[in-house]
Design a binder for these strands. Structure first.
Lengths: 362, 362
DNA sequence: GTGAAAGCGCTAACAC
DNA sequence: GTGTTAGCGCTTTCAC
């Protein structure tokens, strides 16, 4: 044990602003000003102070700064489920800009109502631990909103719209329309839809919007919306598989499926294979996101710039924090249909014997 | 603007411990004790205090607590790249337990040496912002280690071993052996290997270890290790594709490929398809991790319990923080070969014309 | 069982 | 351009 308990660097207690002041022969106020680059410090003084500070490897204790200024220099990112591709991308995008701007990012899982409530209200309330917050597909009630505003927190939402805070997202109705129209254009008329679920960690309006778009496109094409074709996949691979299972097991199964996320589309792909159905020969599948892996399975999808959502959200939080007035604007990012090999024109020969997949393209 | 600037809850300034003390007719010291459940508080007093605290929705200001106690009640999780599946799973696992134990999780991207150095040394040094740190596949030098120890931080590493801190991981040499042996057992002798890269954000010992295992298995089978079969994939889908491209373009291409991660294996799958090669008919592919999507593409892989790494690491940090002595133990988690449909026995008919994929299994 | 008071290490008036 | 000082809101001895 001796080696590191002796005179090593671990021995000295960490330098405080007073140590620096004493060593530099100035007052603590001057040190504070000099170090933070505030005006009214003589060049020579500033240099001397920073030299001394360096030697002592002084750094302001964040807790003390926070207490004195009321600013924590950190922002929270609240996500329902961190282990989903979409959320990890958003968080990753946010982290990059927050780190670059000198903010700590504290990420908070809010799977479910209780967690959300605890975040805002409970014993572990986020208040005073962060200067700002980005909510990624977290539904905010009026009371939540009021709470956040009253506390003066800088907030930005990703996904969901909000009347009081700026938000980043896409036109989710358009997403549904684009997907459905692509399928309709290929001649499909029985189009299954795999979406989210009311309740649970992922209770957000996005699924409704995408379904609305899908229904709108169908109606425009004079096709009845069949409730039997709508199933819940919870935005996970396995959920998507189960959803597709139930869709494909019916006697009058759809010839195409719109999954509201690529991960659910992957599940649908899996289900199709397990049912011995050729994709896209017997069933077409389209997803949303353009997941990293989508190109691998050749998934046709509606791409959205996910990491960019996070980056922009972080930037908007910082702007609010640095004084720029940011109204409750909605930043709508573009989406784009990426056609790959899981969708194809409807063939009339249905329910024939299983053939090997043909989606390879050399 | 009027509605929320008036007498709404936003108007009152947040209650402090003094407010509670006054309202409860006790001293601040008693409030502090009562609220934190410390001994030496009369039952009746405790109840009165918590009632009052509730009414005022009082919560201790974390910055003040931190300053007074020196504990930040938060732990950092340092990862090279947050948007990779592996890291997002680890972080997710850590978040769950940290949140449950009342710690904030601040996640820190450390892509590259500079970022790592800044984390420990620079102006934005992590010191005093966290009580503990988990490093996920972040290489720690002796100086880093010394720094962390001297600061009394609770640290745990995931992936990399470390002589001074507890670490969680798997037997990476065994991973290489298991993958190679599976392929050897199927009759393959020319086995490509897609690994990491020295330098860059992902400069960690894991790739070397897995390669060592692979080479060991080959040697045991009396097969020469051909350096030409070793390429770099950077642990990403696209990197894996490029790596496989170079492997498959050679005149004497391998009949099997061991990719050190599932994401790189996905890339290899893509490459194989683009080269018109049937998997597993003409080329077998095995990965590592058991990514969510692996089941979808039927990838044979060496599974490791990734989220669990994060959860255990977090637990170990907390144990150190709560006084339990935790030596520099290594927790080695089990891995498991999961055979799916991207690997098959070597067929003698090589380089024949392209056939459609046959990996569907109804 | 409870209270008084001295910090924790910084920032921000305010005075010079 | 610089110093003094009063907080920021807690925790924690130490008395009683």
């Amino acid at each position: 044990m001796a080696p590191h308990t002796g005179t090593a660097s671990g021995e000295r207690r960490r330098a405080t602003i007073e140590d620096v002041a004493a060593a530099a022969g100035v007052s603590v106020a001057t040190v504070s000003r000099a170090i933070r680059g505030l005006p009214n410090v003589a060049i020579s003084t500033r240099e001397r102070v920073s030299k001394v500070a360096d030697e002592l490897s002084y750094r302001a204790d964040p807790a003390a700064s926070r207490l004195a200024t009321g600013r924590s220099q950190s922002v929270g990112v609240a996500v329902p489920l961190l282990n989903y591709w979409y959320f990890s991308q958003v968080v990753s995008g946010a982290e990059a800009v927050l780190a670059a701007e000198g903010y700590d990012m504290i990420v908070i899982g809010v799977a479910g109502d209780d967690a959300r409530r605890a975040l805002l209200d409970g014993a572990t309330s986020i208040h005073r631990r962060v200067d700002g917050l980005v909510f990624v597909d977290v539904p905010l009630g009026d009371d939540d909103t009021e709470f956040l505003r009253s506390r003066g927190l800088a907030v930005v939402t990703v996904g969901n719209h909000n009347a009081h805070f700026p938000s980043i997202g896409i036109d989710d109705v358009a997403v549904g329309e684009i997907a459905a129209e692509h399928l309709l254009g290929l001649g499909h008329t029985r189009i299954g839809i795999i979406g989210g679920q009311t309740g649970g960690p992922l209770d957000f309006p996005v699924p409704d919007l995408r379904r609305t778009g899908y229904e709108r496109a169908l109606r425009r094409a004079r096709i009845d919306v069949d409730p039997a074709l709508e199933v819940v996949g919870n935005f996970s691979v396995l959920g998507g598989r189960d959803a597709a299972d139930s869709l494909l097991a019916t006697h009058d199964r759809p010839t195409a499926v719109f999954a509201m996320s690529d991960e659910m589309a992957f599940g649908a792909l899996l289900s199709a294979r397990e049912h011995g159905l050729d994709v896209p020969g017997e069933i077409s599948i389209v997803g949303v996101d353009d997941h990293d892996v989508s190109v691998v399975v050749g998934l046709t999808t509606v791409r959205q710039p996910v990491a960019d959502h996070g980056a922009r959200a972080a930037r908007l939080v910082i702007e609010q924090l640095t004084g720029r007035e940011v109204g409750p604007t909605r930043v709508e990012r573009p989406v784009e249909l990426v056609v790959r090999s899981t969708t194809a024109p409807l063939t009339t020969a249905r329910n024939e014997v299983h053939r090997p997949e043909t989606r390879s393209k050399p």
